[in-house]
Design a binder for these strands. Structure first.
Lengths: 211, 211
DNA sequence: TGATGTGAATTTTTTCACAGCA
DNA sequence: TGCTGTGAAAAAATTCACATCA
Protein backbone atom coordinates (compact mmCIF):
# COMPACT_ATOMS: atom_id res chain seq x y z
CA UNK A 1 0.00 0.00 0.00
CA UNK A 2 1.44 3.32 -1.07
CA UNK A 3 1.91 6.37 1.15
CA UNK A 4 -1.24 8.50 0.99
CA UNK A 5 -0.91 11.97 -0.57
CA UNK A 6 -0.91 14.81 1.93
CA UNK A 7 -4.17 16.17 0.58
CA UNK A 8 -5.86 12.84 1.24
CA UNK A 9 -5.36 13.43 4.95
CA UNK A 10 -7.03 16.82 4.70
CA UNK A 11 -9.93 15.31 2.82
CA UNK A 12 -10.38 12.59 5.42
CA UNK A 13 -11.00 15.35 7.95
CA UNK A 14 -13.64 16.72 5.62
CA UNK A 15 -15.31 13.34 5.24
CA UNK A 16 -15.27 12.84 8.99
CA UNK A 17 -17.05 16.07 9.72
CA UNK A 18 -19.69 15.36 7.13
CA UNK A 19 -20.25 11.83 8.42
CA UNK A 20 -20.72 13.12 11.96
CA UNK A 21 -23.54 15.39 10.81
CA UNK A 22 -24.99 12.70 8.56
CA UNK A 23 -25.03 10.22 11.41
CA UNK A 24 -26.96 12.57 13.66
CA UNK A 25 -29.52 13.12 10.95
CA UNK A 26 -29.89 9.59 9.59
CA UNK A 27 -29.37 7.43 12.63
CA UNK A 28 -26.77 4.84 13.67
CA UNK A 29 -27.58 2.26 11.01
CA UNK A 30 -27.42 4.57 8.03
CA UNK A 31 -25.19 3.81 5.07
CA UNK A 32 -23.79 6.07 2.38
CA UNK A 33 -22.34 5.47 -1.08
CA UNK A 34 -19.21 7.12 -2.37
CA UNK A 35 -21.29 8.76 -5.09
CA UNK A 36 -23.67 10.29 -2.53
CA UNK A 37 -20.86 11.51 -0.31
CA UNK A 38 -19.13 12.91 -3.38
CA UNK A 39 -22.23 14.82 -4.42
CA UNK A 40 -22.59 16.36 -0.97
CA UNK A 41 -18.96 17.38 -0.78
CA UNK A 42 -18.80 18.39 -4.40
CA UNK A 43 -15.83 16.19 -5.25
CA UNK A 44 -15.09 13.10 -7.31
CA UNK A 45 -16.34 9.71 -5.98
CA UNK A 46 -13.20 7.99 -7.30
CA UNK A 47 -11.17 10.28 -5.14
CA UNK A 48 -13.07 9.36 -2.01
CA UNK A 49 -12.64 5.65 -2.66
CA UNK A 50 -8.99 6.13 -3.47
CA UNK A 51 -8.38 8.21 -0.35
CA UNK A 52 -9.96 5.52 1.82
CA UNK A 53 -8.14 2.71 0.02
CA UNK A 54 -4.81 4.01 1.30
CA UNK A 55 -5.91 3.01 4.78
CA UNK A 56 -7.93 -0.14 4.26
CA UNK A 57 -11.29 -1.48 3.11
CA UNK A 58 -14.16 0.16 4.89
CA UNK A 59 -17.09 -0.37 2.54
CA UNK A 60 -19.29 -3.20 1.36
CA UNK A 61 -19.71 -3.89 -2.33
CA UNK A 62 -23.22 -3.29 -3.52
CA UNK A 63 -24.11 -1.38 -0.35
CA UNK A 64 -21.66 1.40 0.39
CA UNK A 65 -20.25 2.43 3.75
CA UNK A 66 -21.84 2.04 7.18
CA UNK A 67 -21.70 5.64 8.34
CA UNK A 68 -20.96 5.01 11.99
CA UNK A 69 -18.24 2.50 11.24
CA UNK A 70 -16.58 4.71 8.64
CA UNK A 71 -16.72 7.69 10.96
CA UNK A 72 -14.99 5.72 13.69
CA UNK A 73 -12.35 4.40 11.34
CA UNK A 74 -11.49 7.84 9.98
CA UNK A 75 -11.47 9.20 13.50
CA UNK A 76 -8.92 6.57 14.39
CA UNK A 77 -6.79 7.20 11.29
CA UNK A 78 -6.62 10.89 12.11
CA UNK A 79 -5.60 10.15 15.68
CA UNK A 80 -8.81 11.55 17.10
CA UNK A 81 -9.49 8.51 19.25
CA UNK A 82 -7.31 9.95 21.98
CA UNK A 83 -6.88 13.29 23.71
CA UNK A 84 -4.31 15.83 22.57
CA UNK A 85 -2.79 18.50 24.76
CA UNK A 86 -2.44 21.96 23.21
CA UNK A 87 -0.95 25.29 24.13
CA UNK A 88 -1.61 28.65 22.56
CA UNK A 89 1.33 31.03 22.08
CA UNK A 90 0.03 34.58 21.73
CA UNK A 91 -3.25 35.77 23.21
CA UNK A 92 -4.10 38.52 20.74
CA UNK A 93 -7.21 38.53 18.60
CA UNK A 94 -6.51 35.32 16.75
CA UNK A 95 -5.42 33.56 19.94
CA UNK A 96 -8.64 34.60 21.64
CA UNK A 97 -10.66 33.41 18.67
CA UNK A 98 -9.06 29.99 18.82
CA UNK A 99 -9.36 29.87 22.60
CA UNK A 100 -13.12 30.34 22.25
CA UNK A 101 -13.48 27.84 19.40
CA UNK A 102 -15.95 25.12 20.36
CA UNK A 103 -14.82 22.60 17.75
CA UNK A 104 -11.74 21.54 19.74
CA UNK A 105 -13.73 19.53 22.22
CA UNK A 106 -15.24 17.35 19.49
CA UNK A 107 -11.74 16.64 18.19
CA UNK A 108 -10.54 15.90 21.71
CA UNK A 109 -8.06 18.76 21.64
CA UNK A 110 -7.65 20.55 24.97
CA UNK A 111 -5.91 23.87 25.46
CA UNK A 112 -4.01 23.47 28.71
CA UNK A 113 -1.81 26.56 28.69
CA UNK A 114 -1.60 29.96 27.07
CA UNK A 115 1.60 31.98 26.68
CA UNK A 116 1.93 35.70 26.17
CA UNK A 117 4.56 38.38 26.67
CA UNK A 118 2.17 41.05 27.95
CA UNK A 119 2.64 41.40 31.70
CA UNK A 120 -0.91 42.61 32.09
CA UNK A 121 -2.17 39.26 30.82
CA UNK A 122 0.32 36.93 32.50
CA UNK A 123 -1.06 35.22 35.57
CA UNK A 124 -4.69 35.51 34.53
CA UNK A 125 -6.80 32.37 34.41
CA UNK A 126 -9.48 31.95 31.73
CA UNK A 127 -11.89 29.03 31.88
CA UNK A 128 -9.39 27.25 34.10
CA UNK A 129 -6.44 27.90 31.76
CA UNK A 130 -3.55 30.02 33.02
CA UNK A 131 -1.65 32.56 30.95
CA UNK A 132 2.11 32.11 31.40
CA UNK A 133 5.01 34.25 30.25
CA UNK A 134 6.67 33.11 27.03
CA UNK A 135 9.89 32.65 28.97
CA UNK A 136 8.32 29.77 30.84
CA UNK A 137 7.46 27.84 27.66
CA UNK A 138 10.14 25.13 28.03
CA UNK A 139 9.26 24.48 31.65
CA UNK A 140 5.46 24.58 31.37
CA UNK A 141 5.22 22.65 28.10
CA UNK A 142 7.30 19.90 29.59
CA UNK A 143 5.43 19.83 32.88
CA UNK A 144 1.97 19.80 31.29
CA UNK A 145 3.07 17.30 28.62
CA UNK A 146 1.82 19.49 25.77
CA UNK A 147 1.73 17.73 22.37
CA UNK A 148 0.89 20.54 19.96
CA UNK A 149 1.65 24.25 20.10
CA UNK A 150 -0.28 26.87 18.20
CA UNK A 151 1.63 30.05 17.37
CA UNK A 152 -0.73 33.01 17.19
CA UNK A 153 1.89 35.58 18.13
CA UNK A 154 3.04 38.41 15.84
CA UNK A 155 5.58 37.54 13.14
CA UNK A 156 8.42 39.26 14.97
CA UNK A 157 8.06 36.99 18.00
CA UNK A 158 7.30 33.76 16.17
CA UNK A 159 10.83 32.42 15.61
CA UNK A 160 11.89 33.02 19.19
CA UNK A 161 8.78 31.21 20.41
CA UNK A 162 9.45 28.36 18.00
CA UNK A 163 12.97 28.06 19.43
CA UNK A 164 11.64 27.81 22.96
CA UNK A 165 9.08 25.24 21.85
CA UNK A 166 11.78 23.19 20.15
CA UNK A 167 13.77 23.17 23.40
CA UNK A 168 10.69 22.04 25.28
CA UNK A 169 10.46 18.84 23.24
CA UNK A 170 7.10 19.61 21.66
CA UNK A 171 6.02 17.33 18.80
CA UNK A 172 4.08 19.61 16.45
CA UNK A 173 3.48 23.29 15.74
CA UNK A 174 0.64 24.96 13.91
CA UNK A 175 1.94 28.37 12.90
CA UNK A 176 -0.36 31.27 12.03
CA UNK A 177 2.40 33.88 11.84
CA UNK A 178 3.19 34.67 8.20
CA UNK A 179 6.87 33.75 8.42
CA UNK A 180 8.85 30.66 7.56
CA UNK A 181 10.01 29.15 10.85
CA UNK A 182 13.21 27.19 11.26
CA UNK A 183 12.61 24.18 13.46
CA UNK A 184 14.35 20.83 13.98
CA UNK A 185 13.39 18.13 11.48
CA UNK A 186 11.80 15.88 14.09
CA UNK A 187 9.21 18.56 14.76
CA UNK A 188 6.11 18.53 12.57
CA UNK A 189 5.37 22.07 11.41
CA UNK A 190 2.28 23.22 9.58
CA UNK A 191 1.65 26.76 8.42
CA UNK A 192 -1.64 28.56 7.98
CA UNK A 193 -1.22 31.81 6.11
CA UNK A 194 -4.36 33.88 5.95
CA UNK A 195 -2.98 36.68 3.80
CA UNK A 196 -2.00 34.14 1.16
CA UNK A 197 -5.65 33.12 0.93
CA UNK A 198 -6.70 36.68 0.26
CA UNK A 199 -3.99 37.17 -2.33
CA UNK A 200 -5.20 34.07 -4.10
CA UNK A 201 -8.63 35.64 -4.50
CA UNK A 202 -7.34 39.03 -5.60
CA UNK A 203 -5.21 37.24 -8.19
CA UNK A 204 -8.22 35.54 -9.70
CA UNK A 205 -10.37 38.63 -9.55
CA UNK A 206 -7.84 40.82 -11.28
CA UNK A 207 -6.59 38.26 -13.77
CA UNK A 208 -10.12 37.07 -14.58
CA UNK A 209 -8.67 33.59 -14.95
CA UNK A 210 -11.10 30.86 -15.87
CA UNK A 211 -12.48 28.43 -13.27
CA UNK B 1 3.02 29.95 -21.73
CA UNK B 2 1.10 27.40 -19.72
CA UNK B 3 -1.46 28.17 -17.00
CA UNK B 4 0.34 28.43 -13.65
CA UNK B 5 -0.44 25.77 -11.03
CA UNK B 6 -2.68 26.97 -8.23
CA UNK B 7 0.08 26.52 -5.66
CA UNK B 8 2.33 28.86 -7.64
CA UNK B 9 -0.06 31.68 -6.84
CA UNK B 10 0.15 30.93 -3.14
CA UNK B 11 3.93 30.87 -3.33
CA UNK B 12 4.03 34.22 -5.12
CA UNK B 13 2.31 35.69 -2.06
CA UNK B 14 5.04 34.16 0.06
CA UNK B 15 7.79 35.60 -2.15
CA UNK B 16 6.16 38.99 -2.07
CA UNK B 17 6.07 39.18 1.70
CA UNK B 18 9.67 38.14 1.97
CA UNK B 19 10.78 40.66 -0.66
CA UNK B 20 9.01 43.47 1.18
CA UNK B 21 11.00 42.72 4.33
CA UNK B 22 14.20 42.22 2.38
CA UNK B 23 13.77 45.54 0.63
CA UNK B 24 13.39 47.40 3.91
CA UNK B 25 16.54 45.80 5.23
CA UNK B 26 18.76 45.95 2.15
CA UNK B 27 17.64 49.13 0.44
CA UNK B 28 16.02 49.98 -2.90
CA UNK B 29 18.90 48.83 -5.12
CA UNK B 30 19.34 45.40 -3.60
CA UNK B 31 19.25 42.29 -5.76
CA UNK B 32 18.58 38.67 -4.83
CA UNK B 33 19.29 35.35 -6.52
CA UNK B 34 16.80 32.52 -6.75
CA UNK B 35 19.17 30.37 -4.71
CA UNK B 36 19.30 32.93 -1.90
CA UNK B 37 15.56 33.43 -1.86
CA UNK B 38 15.14 29.66 -1.91
CA UNK B 39 17.41 29.23 1.09
CA UNK B 40 15.50 31.85 3.08
CA UNK B 41 12.13 30.34 2.27
CA UNK B 42 13.37 26.80 2.58
CA UNK B 43 12.20 25.72 -0.86
CA UNK B 44 13.71 24.73 -4.20
CA UNK B 45 15.30 27.47 -6.36
CA UNK B 46 14.03 25.76 -9.52
CA UNK B 47 10.55 26.12 -8.21
CA UNK B 48 10.93 29.84 -7.67
CA UNK B 49 12.24 30.37 -11.19
CA UNK B 50 9.52 28.16 -12.63
CA UNK B 51 6.79 29.96 -10.68
CA UNK B 52 8.00 33.31 -11.96
CA UNK B 53 8.42 32.05 -15.52
CA UNK B 54 4.67 31.50 -15.80
CA UNK B 55 4.26 35.26 -15.64
CA UNK B 56 7.26 36.60 -17.52
CA UNK B 57 10.99 37.27 -17.23
CA UNK B 58 11.85 39.33 -14.20
CA UNK B 59 15.49 38.53 -13.61
CA UNK B 60 18.84 39.25 -15.18
CA UNK B 61 21.22 36.44 -16.08
CA UNK B 62 24.37 36.53 -14.04
CA UNK B 63 22.85 38.94 -11.53
CA UNK B 64 19.54 37.75 -10.17
CA UNK B 65 16.43 39.81 -9.49
CA UNK B 66 16.20 43.49 -8.59
CA UNK B 67 14.25 43.23 -5.36
CA UNK B 68 12.11 46.33 -5.75
CA UNK B 69 11.21 45.54 -9.33
CA UNK B 70 10.32 41.92 -8.57
CA UNK B 71 8.25 42.97 -5.58
CA UNK B 72 6.27 45.38 -7.73
CA UNK B 73 5.75 42.82 -10.48
CA UNK B 74 4.47 40.17 -8.08
CA UNK B 75 2.28 42.76 -6.41
CA UNK B 76 0.78 43.50 -9.80
CA UNK B 77 0.32 39.83 -10.69
CA UNK B 78 -1.55 39.22 -7.45
CA UNK B 79 -3.79 42.20 -8.09
CA UNK B 80 -2.42 44.12 -5.13
CA UNK B 81 -1.79 47.27 -7.16
CA UNK B 82 -5.38 48.37 -6.57
CA UNK B 83 -7.76 48.58 -3.62
CA UNK B 84 -10.19 45.78 -2.80
CA UNK B 85 -13.41 46.22 -0.90
CA UNK B 86 -14.22 43.60 1.73
CA UNK B 87 -17.06 42.72 4.03
CA UNK B 88 -17.01 40.47 7.06
CA UNK B 89 -19.99 38.18 7.64
CA UNK B 90 -20.09 37.16 11.30
CA UNK B 91 -18.61 39.22 14.11
CA UNK B 92 -17.77 36.48 16.57
CA UNK B 93 -14.25 35.74 17.77
CA UNK B 94 -12.76 34.97 14.39
CA UNK B 95 -14.52 37.92 12.78
CA UNK B 96 -13.14 40.23 15.45
CA UNK B 97 -9.67 38.79 14.98
CA UNK B 98 -9.77 39.48 11.25
CA UNK B 99 -11.27 42.91 11.82
CA UNK B 100 -8.27 43.81 13.96
CA UNK B 101 -5.74 42.31 11.56
CA UNK B 102 -3.21 44.94 10.50
CA UNK B 103 -1.97 43.10 7.42
CA UNK B 104 -4.98 44.09 5.32
CA UNK B 105 -3.83 47.65 4.86
CA UNK B 106 -0.53 46.57 3.31
CA UNK B 107 -2.46 44.42 0.85
CA UNK B 108 -4.82 47.29 0.11
CA UNK B 109 -7.81 45.35 1.41
CA UNK B 110 -10.38 47.50 3.23
CA UNK B 111 -13.20 46.18 5.35
CA UNK B 112 -16.15 48.44 4.54
CA UNK B 113 -19.01 46.56 6.17
CA UNK B 114 -19.65 43.94 8.81
CA UNK B 115 -22.75 41.74 8.98
CA UNK B 116 -24.14 39.92 11.98
CA UNK B 117 -27.45 38.48 13.12
CA UNK B 118 -27.11 39.58 16.74
CA UNK B 119 -29.41 42.55 17.33
CA UNK B 120 -27.20 43.78 20.14
CA UNK B 121 -24.36 44.27 17.66
CA UNK B 122 -26.32 45.59 14.68
CA UNK B 123 -26.06 49.35 14.28
CA UNK B 124 -22.77 49.67 16.11
CA UNK B 125 -19.88 51.39 14.38
CA UNK B 126 -16.31 50.17 14.93
CA UNK B 127 -13.38 52.17 13.56
CA UNK B 128 -15.79 53.76 11.13
CA UNK B 129 -17.27 50.46 9.97
CA UNK B 130 -20.96 49.79 10.59
CA UNK B 131 -22.41 46.44 11.61
CA UNK B 132 -25.46 45.61 9.49
CA UNK B 133 -28.02 42.83 9.79
CA UNK B 134 -27.39 39.80 7.58
CA UNK B 135 -30.73 40.47 5.90
CA UNK B 136 -29.31 43.65 4.42
CA UNK B 137 -26.40 41.84 2.71
CA UNK B 138 -27.73 42.11 -0.87
CA UNK B 139 -28.52 45.80 -0.52
CA UNK B 140 -25.39 46.90 1.35
CA UNK B 141 -22.92 44.80 -0.65
CA UNK B 142 -24.30 46.27 -3.85
CA UNK B 143 -24.36 49.82 -2.54
CA UNK B 144 -20.82 49.71 -1.14
CA UNK B 145 -19.51 47.84 -4.20
CA UNK B 146 -17.94 45.09 -2.10
CA UNK B 147 -15.61 42.78 -4.06
CA UNK B 148 -14.81 40.04 -1.56
CA UNK B 149 -16.84 38.62 1.34
CA UNK B 150 -15.33 36.80 4.27
CA UNK B 151 -17.62 34.31 6.00
CA UNK B 152 -16.74 34.02 9.67
CA UNK B 153 -20.23 33.01 10.78
CA UNK B 154 -21.09 29.65 12.39
CA UNK B 155 -21.51 26.69 10.03
CA UNK B 156 -25.28 26.63 10.42
CA UNK B 157 -25.60 30.17 9.04
CA UNK B 158 -22.94 29.94 6.35
CA UNK B 159 -24.99 28.62 3.42
CA UNK B 160 -27.78 31.14 3.92
CA UNK B 161 -25.21 33.94 4.01
CA UNK B 162 -23.57 32.57 0.88
CA UNK B 163 -26.95 32.63 -0.87
CA UNK B 164 -27.47 36.27 0.06
CA UNK B 165 -23.97 37.10 -1.12
CA UNK B 166 -24.56 35.33 -4.42
CA UNK B 167 -27.70 37.43 -4.93
CA UNK B 168 -25.73 40.56 -4.18
CA UNK B 169 -23.41 39.97 -7.12
CA UNK B 170 -20.25 39.57 -5.08
CA UNK B 171 -17.18 38.25 -6.93
CA UNK B 172 -15.36 36.14 -4.36
CA UNK B 173 -15.87 34.52 -0.99
CA UNK B 174 -13.34 33.39 1.58
CA UNK B 175 -15.14 30.90 3.78
CA UNK B 176 -13.94 30.00 7.27
CA UNK B 177 -17.01 27.96 8.20
CA UNK B 178 -16.19 24.24 8.04
CA UNK B 179 -18.90 23.40 5.50
CA UNK B 180 -18.94 22.98 1.74
CA UNK B 181 -20.88 25.90 0.33
CA UNK B 182 -22.93 25.75 -2.84
CA UNK B 183 -22.39 28.89 -4.86
CA UNK B 184 -22.82 29.84 -8.53
CA UNK B 185 -19.87 28.92 -10.77
CA UNK B 186 -19.04 32.53 -11.61
CA UNK B 187 -18.27 33.16 -7.95
CA UNK B 188 -14.71 32.39 -6.80
CA UNK B 189 -14.87 30.47 -3.54
CA UNK B 190 -11.95 29.62 -1.30
CA UNK B 191 -12.19 27.64 1.91
CA UNK B 192 -10.00 27.87 4.99
CA UNK B 193 -10.63 25.02 7.35
CA UNK B 194 -8.80 25.35 10.64
CA UNK B 195 -9.89 22.04 12.12
CA UNK B 196 -8.50 20.24 9.10
CA UNK B 197 -5.10 21.69 9.93
CA UNK B 198 -5.24 20.30 13.43
CA UNK B 199 -6.36 16.90 12.21
CA UNK B 200 -3.42 16.85 9.85
CA UNK B 201 -1.04 17.23 12.78
CA UNK B 202 -2.78 14.65 14.95
CA UNK B 203 -2.62 12.23 12.02
CA UNK B 204 1.14 12.58 11.79
CA UNK B 205 1.67 12.46 15.50
CA UNK B 206 -0.32 9.29 15.96
CA UNK B 207 0.77 7.56 12.76
CA UNK B 208 4.43 8.50 13.28
CA UNK B 209 4.72 8.86 9.54
CA UNK B 210 8.10 9.88 8.21
CA UNK B 211 8.84 13.47 7.13
C1' DT C 1 31.46 33.59 -15.88
C1' DG C 2 27.27 33.06 -13.45
C1' DA C 3 22.96 33.70 -13.19
C1' DT C 4 18.10 33.08 -15.33
C1' DG C 5 14.46 30.77 -18.10
C1' DT C 6 12.60 26.64 -19.87
C1' DG C 7 11.88 22.03 -22.31
C1' DA C 8 12.21 17.48 -20.68
C1' DA C 9 12.23 13.95 -17.04
C1' DT C 10 10.41 12.62 -12.90
C1' DT C 11 7.29 12.40 -9.28
C1' DT C 12 2.88 13.08 -7.34
C1' DT C 13 -1.98 13.30 -7.58
C1' DT C 14 -6.24 12.64 -9.85
C1' DT C 15 -9.22 10.27 -12.79
C1' DC C 16 -10.68 6.27 -15.14
C1' DA C 17 -12.19 1.60 -16.05
C1' DC C 18 -13.22 -2.52 -14.62
C1' DA C 19 -12.34 -6.80 -11.81
C1' DG C 20 -14.25 -8.75 -7.85
C1' DC C 21 -17.33 -9.62 -4.37
C1' DA C 22 -21.85 -9.42 -1.31
C1' DT D 1 -26.99 -6.43 -9.84
C1' DG D 2 -24.53 -2.63 -7.84
C1' DC D 3 -21.42 -1.21 -5.30
C1' DT D 4 -16.32 -0.98 -3.63
C1' DG D 5 -11.30 -1.32 -4.26
C1' DT D 6 -7.48 -0.82 -7.19
C1' DG D 7 -4.13 -1.14 -11.16
C1' DA D 8 -3.43 1.64 -15.02
C1' DA D 9 -3.85 5.98 -17.61
C1' DA D 10 -3.93 10.81 -17.56
C1' DA D 11 -3.05 15.17 -15.68
C1' DA D 12 -0.64 18.25 -12.70
C1' DA D 13 3.25 19.75 -10.22
C1' DT D 14 8.02 19.47 -9.15
C1' DT D 15 12.71 18.82 -10.17
C1' DC D 16 16.43 18.60 -13.30
C1' DA D 17 19.77 19.89 -16.78
C1' DC D 18 21.35 22.89 -19.72
C1' DA D 19 20.97 26.43 -23.44
C1' DT D 20 21.18 31.22 -23.26
C1' DC D 21 22.55 35.64 -22.66
C1' DA D 22 24.34 40.05 -19.94
Amino acid sequence: MKQPPQVSISRLALYLRFLEDYLLEHGPNSTIKSTQLARFLNINPHQIRKDLSYFGKFGERGIGYRVEELKNKISQILGLDRNWRLCLCGMGNLGSALFAYRGFKQMRLSILAVFDSDHKKIGKVMKGVRIYSVESIPEVVRKLKIDIAVITAPSAAAQSIADKLARSGIKAILNFAPVKLNVPQRLKLRNVDLSTEFNYLTYFLSAQVQQ
